[in-house]
Design a protein around this nucleic acid. Sequence first.
DNA 1: GTTAGCACTCATTGAGAGCGAGTGCTAAAT
DNA 2: ATTTAGCACTCGCTCTCAATGAGTGCTAAC
Lengths: 350, 350
Amino acid sequence: MSANKWGDGMLTERQLYILRVLIDDYIKHVEPVGSRTISKREDITYSPATIRNELADLEDLGFLEKTHTSSGRIPSEKGYRFYVDHLLPSLSVQPSVTDRTELLSTEKVQEAEALFDQSAKILSDITNYTSVVLGPNALDMKLRHMQIIPLSSQMAVAIFVTNTGHVENRQIVLPNSIEPSDLEKLVNILNERLAGVRLVDLNSRIQKELSSVFKKHVRDYQNMGVFLDQLLLWSKKEKLFYGGKTNMLSQPEFRDLDKVRPLLDFLETSDLMEKLVSSTEKGVTVKIGTENEHEAMKNCSVINASYTMHGKHIGTISLIGPTRMEYKKVISLLDSLSKEMTNRLNDFSK
Amino acid sequence: MSANKWGDGMLTERQLYILRVLIDDYIKHVEPVGSRTISKREDITYSPATIRNELADLEDLGFLEKTHTSSGRIPSEKGYRFYVDHLLPSLSVQPSVTDRTELLSTEKVQEAEALFDQSAKILSDITNYTSVVLGPNALDMKLRHMQIIPLSSQMAVAIFVTNTGHVENRQIVLPNSIEPSDLEKLVNILNERLAGVRLVDLNSRIQKELSSVFKKHVRDYQNMGVFLDQLLLWSKKEKLFYGGKTNMLSQPEFRDLDKVRPLLDFLETSDLMEKLVSSTEKGVTVKIGTENEHEAMKNCSVINASYTMHGKHIGTISLIGPTRMEYKKVISLLDSLSKEMTNRLNDFSK
DNA sequence: GTTAGCACTCATTGAGAGCGAGTGCTAAAT
DNA sequence: ATTTAGCACTCGCTCTCAATGAGTGCTAAC
């Protein structure tokens, strides 16, 4: 009789099996599972009483919970964690799933933004959960070309094109002192010297390396500092693409208004969302319940998968649903979808 | 005893007064209002029985409804319409309201987009309803400058700067045949000839006026047509800014999940939203219930106010809430907020 | 024209009974 | 030493029923 190590004790094969069956059933039917239900499965040869004993043990070990004294069991957070880590069948990709991800390929998705948006929409459609794509941080991209286009004597638009074809722009106030010829020189210097530098590094690079050059070519250098700060000081902005924000409403565990409200509010106020779906690890990661370290997410699981460009992790595609998620289906789906995104992205840059 | 014309009949002063009091009360307490409640007001000198007679008449005239045979009255859609058109006290601006709209001025709002976003957020915060700002259609702005920046031998980014400082950009595929010098010529011609033309009109203008010029200066003119279409064919995109999307959940009439769901879904799928909050009229307009001509909005009112630039209507700021809205407060608020937005916008372009 | 009085309606609330799915425990069977 | 049958018990859910109370419409009197 083989056994697995987990925490303090061991689990017998039978316990493992019962735990798996119970969680599968609960995920499917969203109702506490009793001993009779489990014993009815044709591949189970034990009586309800035996199952009950095992269930009591599994509850003592912290894998299961009861909703009230005489109810069936539901998985605890620890139970889900164990299920995801040790009980998930090998991640075979269902054919039906790959069919759907191919949608992504056939749709005419010309630009990266559209790809992210499409991906989020498709993912939430398939799963009926809420999906979030964290787009690449444009400021990590490298400068290809910049330009300043005057609007009036005082105002101008600064435009930055990155190597990925992304365009950042901002309105700036021109210093009174500056002359058109100086502006032109400035832009030329920046383009010559700073091509290939990440947008976010532009400002510090200038401070370090280019002050001498500027002094030589540009009049009124002291005013220039303020201007350059205005031009190159970025506020971090990563773009989030959502799909199925209201899908939470169809999850039976959130039937109650007071329970969905914090969730939906959380989805709307995106400043915390970024942290939630950021992932430093490659591949698919699963965070269950309180592992997400946010009150509103305590009954949710977040699954992240990262996509890459030229082998570098640049963003994530995530799924948010109740802790009782269809992990089996969803993990493999996210895996293949993130790979598909990676492929498509690298096609763009050909 | 004076009277007002409305539909087929007349309403006595007393009826007008009772109707107003009832709607005020219902808006405040969200519960059917009975004759006793009305008669208790100190400025009412009649007994409940008299009120009942009047209420019965007002119901016959279609201004009021009952939820069941022995309930108090609630306003009908027609009732609200009459209330908004004839019973609203003169739109005096509450001091508390102006205080809040000044927030807009003090916040450092540098760009138009930020202004719209801020406005939507502030509006929904004050009112606890859902707000939507329909941004100006960038394609109606005039071309200030355009540029094509190559990314690779095949791909390039086209950038269009408008007179308002807005930047539109798109990735394009370069025709095989085109030479860098030709591309430069093309851009020069476009900038010389098309400055001041609305983006949306660029393509047709070229077809009409510039084909001869191109033939003279640019080789391989036949391929150029496809390329220009790709470059200048816009898909309409107007930007929507939301505030308080989940505020609907705190409205007592939408306590029920099945009732909010369609609403929230509607708010998410924005393609119909644009039509809902578009308004050709200047000033503040109110659409009540089914006047909005969308199933999901049948129990909602939409209040639109347009903001302008150089006297031209360019967008709207709107509020979506239950038909039982605090019209009094909200209409004057929207009026002043839209004016404030107009001021701020015109400050930008100085 | 106004109002007091009264019968009537209907949504809401709470108590109590019955049901059923589930448990834990004990003692017998394997 | 396991496994299982049997049984008492718990708890949530649903149904019914009666009481309550806010409201109405109508009629007859003021």
